[in-house]
Each structure stands twice: as C-alpha cells, then as structure tokens.
Amino acid sequence: MLNPAIEIQILAVLVAVSCTLSGVFLVLRKMAMMSDAISHSILAGIAIAFLYVGDINSPLLIIGAALTGVVTVFLVELLKQTHLVSEEASIGLVFTFLFSVGVIIISRYAGNVHLDIDAVLLGEIAFTPFNRLIIANIDFGPKAIYIITAILSLNITYIYLFYKELKLVTFDPTLATMLGFSPVIIHYSLMGVVSITAVGAFEAVGFILVVALMVVPPLTAYLITDNLSNMIFISCFIGVLIGIVGYQMAYVFDVSIAGSMATVAGIIFLVVFLVSCWKKSSFGRQQRNNNIN
C-alpha cells in the first residue's frame, strides 16, 4: 500500500485539478463569486440530508449537497428577476441564509454526531487516508481518492463533450440562442457540475478553499493567455503546482494543508500579476518609443 503522505499528495493534486477545471468557465462567465455562494450553501444541503438520513456516510448527503448548489443559483436568479435586488446583493443574501440554516441545524440536531462545524469549515485532507475502501478484506486505498477521481472524470467528460457549447454560450450567448443552443440548460448543467465538484472537494479542503482552487488558477491563466484551450491547460498546470507545492510546504512547516494550498495559489497569482504588469508597462514603453522613432 501507498504511504499516507503520498496518498494525501495525490488527493491534493486531484482536488486542485478538478476544482480548477470547473472553475474556468465560472470565471469566464463572470460568476467567480458564485463559487463562494455555492460552496457555502452546500452546508445547508448536507445538514438537511443528514437530518433526513441520519447517517453521515450516506451518498444521499452528496446528492443533497449538490442539489443545494443548483437551488442556490436558482434562488439568486429568482431574486434578481424581481429587479428589486442587484445580482451581487442577491448572491450575498441567498448563500448567507442557506449557510445559517446549515449551521443552525448542525448545532441543534447534530451536536453528538461527528459533524463538527470546524471540520466542515476547514476540511482536513490529512484525515482522509483513515477512511479506506475495504472490499473483502483487501485495502483499496482511501475512499476519497475514488470519489475525487470520479468527480475529475465527470469534469473532464463534461468539458470534452460540451466544449463547443460552453465556449459559444460563454462568449456569445445571443448567437448561441439563435443557433438553438439553450444558454439556460448549459448554465444549469455547469452549475450542477460546479456543485458536485465543490461537494467532493470540500470534504478535503473545506469550502472556502474550494473557492481558492476554483477561482485563482483560472484567473492566473487568464492573465497569461487569451486562448480558451490554452487557458484550460495552463490553469490545470497551475492547479497541479498548487497541489504539490502547497502540500509540501504544509508538510515542511507543519501547518494547515488547505490553507497552505490557498496561500501558494495566492503567491503564484501575485507573481504572475506582477510579471504581467511589468510586461504590460515595458511593452507600452516599447510601443511609445517605436512611435517616437
């Protein structure tokens, strides 16, 4: 069997890449904060499903949580359509409400069960190797690796199959509608994939760092390139980098793994941002010089 440290490392990379993949289109559709909303609201879904099922390991919890993600998007749209509340105010209202419902349910009804708010909030990737998949006394490794692999393949399949549609709907929704692709269907299916990814990832890294992994690598790639397929590959590469460097840093300094991954993401973004600013300004200077000459 693999060493737990290597298992955690693999898990970290898989989580980072699957979040990144679902984040690319979210960022391009100017819905970065929706990842924040979805990842918070999931708590309500998990709590309500837990009330219903009473078993923390039930797969229904994951389904419930993923559904809540989509419900969040729907509620935000509903509030927005009244034209009484701006989009970002409605995002802020909906997710804080659902999150509060989740916290209240957990602290009232799940006090004795292992559904600790801190664990949910911060996630602990270091504990995932303890929860192993054992079939007929044979150890197949941590369960989390299988779950996240499934989610990663879902992401890859979704983007591979609907690449054209996603691209069209993201960059020219009017044309997409005219050609008969429904932006609404693409929108909600994307939100579904994002929610499922967030659910899978948040057990490992907690829901605020889901946001870091979904938003930071694509936006960093966005600074580097303006080609969609390049952007996807670069952000996946950054995701892998975050997974490896983040975990190793956490290992060396003995700090929170999820936090360290987010910090590394922030550092990578900062470096790329500074380089792009510098390049832009030197490029501008060059052009001005050319004009003078």
Partner: peptide, 17 residues
C-alpha cells in the same frame, strides 16, 4: 468579482495557515 473571490479565499487561506 474575480478580484473579490481571489482576495477572499487567499486571505482566508493565509489566516488558516
């Protein structure tokens, strides 16, 4: 909103570290 999401998550991550 992209900038918001970056700042929010990275600062919170540093806080957790």
């Amino acid at each position: 909103d992209g900038a918001l999401a970056i700042i929010l998550s990275v600062f919170f991550g540093m806080g957790m570290v």
